[in-house]
Each structure stands twice: as C-alpha cells, then as structure tokens.
Amino acid sequence: MLALPRAHVGQMIGLLEVLEDFKGRVDVAKVADDLILELDDLLPAVDAAELLSFIEVDSGDLILKETGREFLSKGPKVRKKLLNKYVANLESFKKIINFIRNQENCEVSKEELLDLLKGEVADFDVESDFSWIIEWGRDSLLLKYDSDNDKIRA
C-alpha cells in the first residue's frame, strides 16, 4: 500500500493539539474516549501524524515528538513550510513529484498520474488515494491541481 497520510490535515493537527493538552503522552484509547470517537475514526489521524514523524507510538501510547511540538508552536505560514519539508520527504510524494517534474512544463494529467500509481502499487484505491494526494500536496504547497482540466503541476 502506498504510504500516504489518509486523514485530513486539520484532523492530524487536532490530534497533535490533544496530545499537547495531555502533556505529550497519552493512551490512544483515552484520546478516543475523551473525544467520544471510535478508535477506528481516530487511527487515520494517528497514522498520518506518525508517518510525518510528528508522533511516536509506543505500546498503545501516543507520544508527541519534538518535531510535533515545533510544528504546533508555529503560525499557519511556517506550518506550511514545515509540512512542505516533511511531505516532500515521503517516498510516495518523492515518486509523484519526480514523475511530474520530468514531464514537459512540470505538468501531468490526472490520468497519467493514476496510471503511474496503478503500475507501481497493487492495491491502489484510485479515487480516494488521489484525493489524499491532492489534499496534502496542496496544503504543503507541493502540488497544484486544477480540477477544471484535471492538470497537476509540481
């Protein structure tokens, strides 16, 4: 499976904020309980935060890392810069950005990107993963997507 954050950016930041409220370390079940969320609804945000190295998971405890604290201490502009750095470092995004930058005008169509990913990954869930790529790519200012003509730029 393609290693992608599969929660909304705001959900991941919300999770980091809750961890900070719990002094940086708390049992995942306690977070779910506190937010009146099913564990299954919380886990995508946990996975996203872990993938971006903002938290560590240790035997059921979520631990806010220094990088996560630093991220939280910044305003929206710097947060985007940090996201830009961390998202660009994910293998999945490296591959996507490389692919796009090697095309003419640094631009591909949605179809071309989907073909690349379907070829690389066995269980690629086309529509949902595409929208996660676009959401995180836009938020981190790595990708531009124009849904009027289905063009993606990097």
């Binding site: 909304h8 705001g10 959900q11 929206p76 959401e135 836009r138 981190s140 997507y145 849904s147």
Partner: peptide, 21 residues
C-alpha cells in the same frame, strides 16, 4: 487566504475540500 492557512487551495472548489477547510 495565507492567514487562514488556505494557501494552495485558491483554485479548489468546495467539493474538493474537507469540512474543516
């Protein structure tokens, strides 16, 4: 847009946004 953390989404339509966005 910059202040609200919406940079990167200027050309997006509402249907492409999470509820938070």
């Amino acid at each position: 847009i910059e202040f609200m953390g919406l940079s990167g989404f200027e050309e997006a339509y509402p249907r492409e946004l999470s509820r938070g966005m």
